[in-house]
Nucleic acid binder design. Sequence first.
DNA 1: CGTGTGCCCTGACAGC
DNA 2: TGCTGTCAGGGCACAC
Length: 271
Amino acid sequence: MPELPEVETTVRGLARFLDGARIERVVLNRPDLRRPFPPALVQRMTGAVVTGLSRRAKYGLIHVDRGATMIFHLGMSGRWRIDPERPDAHDHLLIETAHNRFALCDPRRFGSVDLEETELLDAWPRFAALGPEPLGPDLTPAYLKAALSGRVQSIKACLLDQRIVAGLGNIYVCEALWRARIHPKKKSGKVTKPQLARLVPAIRDVLSESIRDGGSTLRDYAAPDGALGYFASSFDVYGREGETCRREDGGTVRRIVQGGRSTWYCARCQR
DNA sequence: CGTGTGCCCTGACAGC
DNA sequence: TGCTGTCAGGGCACAC
């Protein structure tokens, strides 16, 4: 489920319960996800007080006192379950506070958990390699122009590259390209200035709107076994193969495969 | 360096 | 009711 808006919504949902709380207990139900759990995780987190939560790209950050930060990535299938009524076979890590229990559930185990010193987070190699936050001030048409210049990869592939923009995934790349009316196979270095001028707000808007919609479901998220889903009904192209383009220009949404992943677009309005 | 290809893993769904 | 094949929000190792 998790692209940037879903991680942001997850972090906000967790913060309502976790921020300021003391972690009483940490339980690992297996040794690893994509990577082994950090050896010091249980010791550093147990008894610590959560001082804040934040997000970088698709990573969620739980900051605690004593200068440590737990970094989680939800991969393809990860989610946090708050106060689950019954255990799930894929609850791999549990955190307990005085009032709540939090289960990191991830059936496919493409997610990860890391532990870093808070003051060294910017230098953490996975963060140091990331491009700018799409909702921050550094994503501009001029930045994209420079970052994409000379690249022969498709614009679809480049927007999925976390080194160019951090946090976009398959859904929101498709959606942003549709909004900006850019063909997903367009060579990155050949995307025009007017297209880039449309692309930046398209990215910001689609992410902001999704966060806004996700935020409205925090009530559901807080339910015992609440899951956070995508709002498929609000997608313009993703998963809509064969449907009429919502621009009502007579186009039909098509599905192609790029780099082994599906892309949906309208061949009439995206050029 | 930039680019393309598989693979990690489980579950949901379609078709037989 | 099985089976079997396909596909899924991501990231990374590896080959050229």
